[in-house]
Design a protein around this nucleic acid. Structure first.
Length: 571
RNA sequence: GCGCCCGUAGCUCAGUGGAUAGAGCGUUGGCCUGCGGAGCCAAAGGUCGUGGGUUCAAGUCCCUCCGGGCGCGCCA
């Protein structure tokens, strides 16, 4: 499905090679390394065995007999490589026309047309303040949500918040003992946290408290009105708190459903699993044996005392999503420590017959503190709210320094965009698989490879655009605007955006887009530094360069938008 | 003990099996009479954890070992 210039150029290279060699060979198109003056390369080593000829000779033969290719120059043989350069006139023209025609849709595709993906994103714990630990799922999930929508899918972002489970027993009991009404009225979730921590301390001195907590958990489970009322209140307060955070982050969901929404359905799922022979009784519990799927530990559907578990409700939720949305794929953006859980979940779903859905656990490394793993109970935790505030205030200090004459409202807006952007970018610009040791300065970095560097690119481009309303040049971009290395490199980089977007979605790696944008920023800054736009020699050249600037601003805005990062007009 | 993940420059990280492994930070030294210096240019800095293997070609794939992290039946 080659629609963009990059794709077409690559497929022209492939068919050209096949035509000359006259065989349906597997042709690999790569990008040459830095020192080589070429845009695409085809290594000829793999053909050697089949053609009984040296790679160097094959490359030479190809170079000599290559038919004319619209977007590529006549290739050259260099060693065992066949090197192509883009044809500036045709390739550059096509790129710029695509950009002009598609605008904010440049980079999008129809790949997901008619298909739905459901993404499990964020899923915080009710009754706890969100910590930086929830950042990754929220931010990575949001970026994937946007990327999939951009790729043409119907993307459903689901917040599956944890509002059920044994921890509510301790909380309800704790509330009956130590609740400070006034503190609860002012900052309910913080007060609940205090109680949660206090229970842990007290229970260490007096283990009988744990029985009390179990008692309350049971009351809640059985629908006791008082327990139920307290629980509902906790959930309400928590969701209100989450809302505030998501609002600052600019993250939205298509569906909010807590685990408790699946209590009834869990019973049906248990029945179904039993009926299909997927689940069996074992030591008083109901389990799904998974040895045949390569797992020693089974998925547990019902505990020996008859309660549903996290895994039961997750299974019910998955089935609910499949029946409600008819998705092609279920995606879970959840930490790597739950790998086993998702292997079990997916295997169970397949056993139950849900085989026409693909499942993906998009995992990511843990965020830890320098002193070790975060622990809410021990108060060893960094709250997301504090991180956001700190980021915004650091950005604000910088705005005051760099752009003192900006109006107050704009300063606030810029500080928010830059501060929040910095946090998101810090996470989205590196591969998600590695663990991260939390570090204020690193997470809130505002220089180098950081959000403001990219946002500043946009600001600079917009600065030029504000000063001139030159329209897209009649008759297309002027060849003279593609002559210098700065111009040509920028155009070539713009052309690669669709590829970055596609790869990021395909591999669930938003950092591919982030890295791409960083490269774009670098190339643009060099262009900006060396190529006069407003002062171009004549009107047509100026309009042509303006269209390049326009394209750069557009791609930066679209790309950052896919990462959930906004751009200011000034900063 | 078993399973999974990670190990690339002083630090933090990129690197679809292809050519001479790249950035940012930090260090040193340059560039504001051009469209905003939150910028640009340059230098120094590497046995890609270790040892084998597969391949025409390995930072990338497979195995050993070392170091770190996570997980392993009724928590979420």
């Amino acid at each position: 499905m080659p629609t963009y210039a990059v794709d077409q150029a690559a497929s022209q290279a492939v068919s050209g090679v096949r035509e000359v060699l006259g065989e349906p060979l597997d042709v690999n198109v790569t990008t040459p390394p830095h020192g080589v003056d070429a845009d695409l390369a085809v290594p000829c080593f793999p053909f050697a065995a089949k053609l009984r000829q040296k790679p160097e000779e094959i490359a030479r033969r190809l170079a000599d007999h290559m038919p004319p290719l619209g977007l590529l120059e006549q290739p050259r043989a260099e060693g065992g490589y066949l090197n192509f350069r883009f044809n500036r006139a045709s390739y550059g023209k096509m790129v710029m026309e695509d950009l002009d025609r598609l605008g904010a849709r440049f980079g999008s595709s129809e790949e997901g047309e008619g298909k739905t993906v459901v993404l499990d994103i964020s899923s915080p714990n009710v009754a706890r303040p969100m910590s930086v630990g929830h950042l990754r799922s929220t931010i990575i999930g949001d970026a994937l949500h946007r990327l999939y929508a951009f790729a043409g899918y119907t993307a459903v972002g689901v917040n599956h918040y944890a509002d059920w489970g044994t921890q509510f027993g301790t909380l309800l009991y704790g509330m009956t003992q130590w609740l400070d009404r006034e503190a609860y009225g002012k900052a309910p979730v913080r007060e609940l946290l205090r109680i949660y921590v206090k229970f842990d301390e007290e229970a260490r001195a007096d283990p009988s408290l744990r029985d009390q907590a179990r008692e309350w958990a049971l009351r809640l489970e059985q629908g006791d009105p008082e327990a139920r009322r307290m629980w509902e209140e906790i959930v309400r307060h928590s969701l209100a708190e989450f809302d505030k955070i998501y609002d600052v982050l600019g993250v939205t969901f298509d569906s909010w459903r807590g685990e408790s929404a699946y209590l009834e359905m869990s019973q049906e799922v248990i029945e179904e699993a039993r009926r299909k022979g997927v689940a069996v009784e074992d030591q008083g519990a109901l389990i799904v044996p998974l040895k045949d799927a390569g797992m020693e530990t089974p998925l547990i559907l019902r505990s020996s005392d008859g309660r549903t578990l996290y895994s039961t409700r997750d299974l019910a939720a998955a089935i609910y999503r499949i029946r409600t949305y008819r998705p092609a794929q279920l995606i879970y953006v959840v930490g790597a420590e739950q790998r086993l859980h998702f292997r079990q979940l997916f295997a169970t779903l397949r056993k139950l017959g849900f085989t026409d859905v693909t499942y993906a656990h998009v995992d990511f490394g843990l965020i830890t503190l320098p002193e070790g793993r975060m622990s809410t109970r021990r108060g060893r935790v960094v709250f997301l709210e504090d991180v956001l505030q700190e980021a915004i205030s650091r950005a604000r200090a910088l705005v005051d320094e760099k752009n003192a004459e900006l109006p107050e409202v704009d300063k606030e807006e810029v500080a928010r965009l830059v501060g929040v952007g910095a946090i998101k970018y810090a996470d989205l610009s590196q591969s998600r698989v590695k663990n991260v040791v939390f570090d204020w300065d690193r997470m809130l970095s505002l220089d180098g490879d950081s959000a403001p560097y990219l946002q500043y690119t946009y600001v600079r481009a917009r600065g030029i655009m504000r000063k001139s309303a030159a329209p897209y040049p009649a008759g297309g971009i002027d060849r003279r605007a593609m002559e210098t290395a700065e111009e040509w490199n920028l155009i070539k980089h713009l052309a690669r955006f669709p590829e970055a977007v596609r790869e990021a979605a395909r591999t669930y790696h938003p950092h591919i887009v982030a890295n791409y944008l960083f490269g774009l920023a670098q190339v643009f800054h060099v262009f900006y530094h060396n190529v006069p736009v407003l002062q171009a020699e004549d009107e047509h050249l100026r309009a042509s360069r303006m269209s390049i600037v326009h394209g750069a601003a557009q791609v930066m805005q679209t790309g950052l938008g896919l990462l959930g990062i906004g751009v200011p007009e000034r900063m």
